[in-house]
Design a protein around this nucleic acid. Structure first.
Lengths: 111, 111
DNA sequence: ATCTTATATCGCAAATATACGATTAAAGGA
DNA sequence: TCCTTTAATCGTATATTTGCGATATAAGAT
C-alpha cells in the first residue's frame, strides 16, 4: 500500500525527496524554466505558454509553491509568480553535498 | 486524467523530470546515499539497512536502475548494485545549467 | 450594478506509485 | 538430489498524481 513510510527516513532524505517530487513532472520543469529565464516574476501569461488547461497549470503552480520552490502573490484577478532562489539553492546544495562531493572520491566503475 | 501529456514537453524537460522522479522518494534517496558512501558496489545488505520489505526495496532498486542512476549485475542469488556516476553527473549538470547558472544573473527578490 | 478577465478551487475519472506477502528462480552447499 | 539463501517478480490493496471541466472568486472596466 501507499502507506508511505516516510517517517522511517531522515529529515534530509525526506526534504530532498520532496524537492525532487516537485520537479518530477515535465510541466513543472517547464514552468520553473520559464520563471528562471526571466529577470522578474511572471504575472499571467504562464497558461498561454503551456499546452495544458488553466486549472491544471494552476495546480502545478500550487505544488511548486507548496514545495517552496516558487513564491507568489495573488493580486485580485492577477497572480504573480517567481522562483524562490533561496530555497532552490538550499536544495541544490544539499543535493550536491550528498552526491557530487562524494563523486570526486569515488569515481570508480564497478559493476 | 493522468493522460500524462509528456509528449507536449521537450526531451530535456522530460529527462530532467524522470531524473527527479527517480529521486522523489526518501527510500530511493537513502539507497543512493548508501551506494554513494561506499567505494564499491553493495552486494546484498541493502535490504537489511532499510526499514522496508525485501520486495519493496527490490522494486525501488529496479526504478533506480530503469532511470539509469544505478547499475547492477545479478549474479545468481546475489545481486550487486552501484551508482552510475556518469549518468548521475550528466543529469546534475543539466540541472545546474538550467537553474543554478541562471541564478547568478537573476538573484532578485520580487514577489 | 453588471460584465469581463484572470485565476483558484472543487469534483471526478483515470493513471501511477507504494507496499507487502506469496511465489518463483537461480546458485551453492549438504 | 534436495535444502538453503538471496533476490526478482506477481498479485493485489490502497494512496497519490494528473488532468480537465465546471464553478467560485475577486478586481477592474463599463
Amino acid at each position: 500500500m501507499a502507506i508511505h513510510k516516510k517517517s522511517a527516513f531522515t529529515q534530509k532524505e525526506q526534504e530532498l525527496a520532496n524537492f525532487a517530487k516537485a520537479m518530477a513532472h515535465p510541466a513543472r520543469i517547464a514552468i520553473l524554466k520559464l520563471l528562471a529565464q526571466r529577470n522578474e516574476c511572471i504575472c499571467g501569461e504562464i497558461v498561454d505558454l503551456l499546452p495544458l488547461a488553466q486549472s491544471t497549470v494552476s495546480q502545478h503552480l500550487k505544488e511548486l509553491k507548496n514545495a517552496g520552490l516558487v513564491t507568489g502573490t495573488i493580486d485580485g484577478p492577477r497572480s504573480c509568480y517567481c522562483i524562490n532562489w533561496k530555497a532552490f539553492s538550499t536544495f541544490n546544495n544539499e543535493f550536491n553535498f550528498l552526491f557530487t562531493n562524494l563523486k570526486v572520491k569515488n569515481e570508480k566503475a564497478c559493476c
